[in-house]
Amino acid sequence: MSSAGDGVSSAGDGVSSAGHLLEVKTLGAGYGIVEVLFGVDLVVDQGEVVVVLGANGAGKTTTLRAISGMIAATGQVTFLGESVLGRRPDQLVKRGMAHVPQGRGTVTSLTVEENLRIGAFVRSDEQIESDIEQWFEAFPRLGERRDQLAGSMSGGEQQMLAIARALMSRPKLLLLDEPSLGLAPLVTHEVFDRLREISTSTGTAVLLVEQNANLALDFAARAYVLEAGRIVLSGNAADLQGDAAIQKAYLGV
């Protein structure tokens, strides 16, 4: 999948003064009168894989939705050196941020191929067709089902398709919301293996939100722990994996 990364700029250009790809400060958000986030701070660097861990209801999904502009939020979100709070999701896709929502979010009444094609909506270059073909090579099972409706595929296949579709926009940052949700452990491992390959080969940064901490810490370089709408812990994935408290709270040891 190297060519899918052709559009990704090398580290350094367009990045905020502090050098971060994404910088989130005192992010607050909620639904109606129910506040969910109370000042979340986090950063993601160019090409980096970062995970946000947390229990159900800690505000993981809300964090991603607030960053990608799906819900109203307060605080600061800086992406590629530009303040993007208040932008609509489609405007952020144009700037290079793609969000794979929970529950996969493929367009179920479009075919597999149409899903990939629509993923390239913000692009107008010549390589869209070849990108699509490369995804079909990379995921033969998607290739076999290219003219099938996305809704007719299995959960794992739809998750793959959702990720592939998001990457069709050649993002600099991929927001991923619980890709393991509802998948069999074996399928989950496959999804993460693929994800690692893609991320390293294209240099796409990933901000992942997960409940499955073991898996996520294997995959990510750095991690944040979210509790009741606040970041309570952060550090290198390896360090957190060794941390006794984390082990107890999230890794079920």
Partner: peptide
């Protein structure tokens, strides 16, 4: 929602 997330205005 999905449409918006692939950059469709």
């Amino acid at each position: 929602e999905s449409a918006s997330l692939v950059g469709i205005p």
